[in-house]
């Protein structure tokens, strides 16, 4: 899964007087369901064991979320 498909980013305004060290790029989540109004039939599927682990039978709807991404 390519997580960059499901993330967006922007550069917020940065003031020379920002009291905290400014974060120059902010990232946000664009979850898979945003791009799939109706699920197409016949999408590739995980094995039952993998599906249980990921929370979905279809890899195309799994975008993960890790604190290492630093979104918050």
């Amino acid at each position: 899964m390519d997580r960059s498909l499901f993330r967006g980013s922007y550069k917020p305004y940065v003031s020379p007087r920002d009291p905290c060290p400014p974060i120059l790029v902010k990232t946000f989540v664009l979850p898979p369901q945003l791009f799939t109004n109706f699920q197409k039939p016949g999408l590739p599927q995980y094995s039952p064991e993998q599906a249980l682990k990921h929370g979905s039978l279809w890899p195309s709807f799994v975008d993960g979320f890790y604190s290492e991404e630093g979104i918050s």
Partner: peptide
């Protein structure tokens, strides 16, 4: 606005 944000997809920028 949601559509505008969808255009901000990182993948597209790369």
């Amino acid at each position: 606005a949601v559509e505008l944000l969808k255009d901000e997809r990182d993948r597209k920028k790369i």
